[in-house]
Design a protein around this nucleic acid. Structure first.
Lengths: 158, 158
DNA sequence: TAAAACTATATGAAAAAACATATAATAGGA
DNA sequence: TCCTATTATATGTTTTTTCATATAGTTTTA
């Protein structure tokens, strides 16, 4: 047979442009690493986007729609609809901001609070497990490198 | 004013769970880094997904639908439809695999070939520029760390 | 070699996401 | 203060994406 059945480790992955391209590595690593944990998120009855919102609110309850969009890496209109659904399922509530009638602040319900705490704990455990499978050097390097990249990208001037 | 207008660098980003969470850093870095280059992709009249397909075919022309799905990190049915559109816009062509009538192999047209070469060149330049903005240490560390992570995640055993 | 199991691609229907824009509230001049 | 510009959220529409499944070709095996 000229073509191998399972081309998992094909010539493609060994050489060529894509397999060493930074943006590909970032996307692939993000996707592969998230995949594992996302299984747990779905087991908790949540969609990925909802988990992201919960995690943001875990850190800082009462964020605005716009702030959530920024932190959770999503468009504003998307957040609006996700909050609609999360409000329906009893995870969060909307409150008008006193002082600025345009703003809507999102707060965790009791249920949302306990669920977010639970998932954050699981996420931390998963992260530790994941980092423990890496060579020590890489495990130590990865977050600083990503933070440097983010910092460089967020800097307005260039 | 109690709430700053532009909360770019808020308390959120300084501390808390999310801002140091590996899966968040990966997603955020991937998104932020890609964003810049994606502007160029759209200027070339392509969607991001189409660029991914072009890049894969640049490395290895004649990939199957399934292989493209794997390498471009997308679902099979999605690739099928993207190839439909790319065929319509004259970037690729489908050919039946001789030897296995189920397989469909995708080949770049002349136009697809020149466009992919052009964009790959631009992508390499962008990557170099991006890495040059990082501290040398981080620039040297990031790809090995991502590769280690990917390797660890692809390994079946654990 | 016929049946069963499996692989590759396509497609209909449903859900999610993006895009543009509407609505409402506030802020900032003239 | 009134007019304009700006900000925050919501919503209608369209496009993407997913999910489940159909179709067709190949391999396996009894």
């Amino acid at each position: 047979m000229s073509t191998p059945k399972k081309a998992k480790t094909s010539a493609f992955e060994q050489s060529g442009f894509v397999s060493g391209y930074l943006l590909y590595l970032l996307a692939a690593a993000s996707e592969a690493a998230s995949k594992q944990f996302h299984t747990r998120v779905r087991e908790a009855g949540l969609r990925i986007t909802e988990w992201r919102v919960l995690a943001c609110l875990y850190d800082q309850d009462g964020l605005m729609i716009t702030e959530l969009a920024h932190y959770a890496l999503m468009e504003q209109s998307r957040i609006t609809r996700i909050i609609d659904q999360m409000e329906t399922s009893g995870l969060v509530v909307r409150h008008n901001d006193e002082g600025d009638g345009r703003r809507v602040r999102i707060y965790l319900t009791d249920h949302g609070q306990s669920l977010s705490a639970e998932l954050v704990t699981a996420a931390k455990a998963h992260e530790m497990q994941l980092l423990s499978t890496l060579p020590v050097k890489d495990a130590a390097n990865i977050k600083p490198a990503l933070l440097a990249l983010l910092g460089s990208l967020e800097a307005p001037a260039n």
